[in-house]
C-alpha cells in the first residue's frame, strides 16, 4: 500500500513539474495601454509620461505628443480588452500568445477595419495608429507588456 502511495505521489510530483511551465505561461501578463495624440503643428514637445517612447515617436512626423488616456490590465491568453478612443471608435486588444520572452498581441479597430498581429519581446512596446489623421492630428495606442 505504501508502495502504491509512493508511486502516486511520485506521479503527481512529476505531473506538477511538467505542468509548471504551462502554468507559468498561462499566467496573466500585466499590460499598460496608453492612448496618445500626435500633432504635426505646434512647438515640438513630448509629454514627460511618454519619455520611454521617445525612440519610436521620434521616427514620426508628429512633433507634439500628449498622453490622453491610460489603462492597465492583467491579460490572460485569448482575453481581450476594449478601450474607447477619442473619436468614438473602440480599440480591441487581445493577448494572442505569451512565451518566456515574447508576447503577441492583436490590435483591432473594427470601425477602421484594421487588424494587426504583432509579436514583441519583453522590453519592447507597440505604437499603433488607431485613428485617421485629422487637421494634422492623429491618435495612437501604445501597448507595453510587463511595464
Amino acid at each position: 500500500m505504501i508502495g502504491r502511495s509512493g508511486f502516486a505521489a511520485s506521479t503527481l510530483a512529476v505531473a506538477l513539474l511538467a505542468a509548471a511551465p504551462t502554468l507559468a505561461e498561462a499566467a496573466t501578463v500585466p499590460v499598460r495601454i496608453r492612448i496618445i495624440k500626435g500633432s504635426r503643428q505646434g512647438p515640438a514637445a513630448v509629454d514627460p509620461r511618454l519619455a520611454d517612447l521617445r525612440g519610436q515617436l521620434g521616427r514620426l512626423a508628429y512633433v507634439k505628443w500628449d498622453q490622453v488616456g491610460e489603462h492597465h490590465a492583467d491579460m490572460g491568453l485569448g482575453k481581450s480588452v476594449s478601450l474607447p478612443l477619442p473619436d468614438g471608435a473602440t480599440l480591441e486588444l487581445t493577448l494572442v500568445d505569451a512565451q518566456k520572452d515574447t508576447v503577441t498581441f492583436q490590435v483591432r479597430v473594427p470601425a477602421r477595419r484594421t487588424n494587426s498581429r504583432l509579436t514583441i519581446s519583453k522590453d519592447q512596446r507597440i505604437v499603433h495608429q488607431v485613428t485617421d489623421e485629422k487637421n494634422g492630428e492623429a491618435y495612437f495606442a501604445t501597448v507595453r507588456p510587463w511595464p
Binding site: Q56, R59, L60, N115, S116, R117, I120, D132
Partner: peptide, 28 residues
C-alpha cells in the same frame, strides 16, 4: 525572440510598419 513578426491588415487603406529596436510602429 523572433524578428518581431508583424501582420497588419486594414481594408481600404495602406499601412506602414516601422521596425525599431524598441518595437514596431504601425501607421495607417
Amino acid at each position: 525572440p523572433e524578428g518581431a513578426p508583424v501582420e497588419v491588415s486594414s481594408e481600404g487603406r495602406s499601412t506602414m510598419v516601422l521596425e525599431t529596436s524598441e518595437g514596431p510602429v504601425v501607421l495607417l
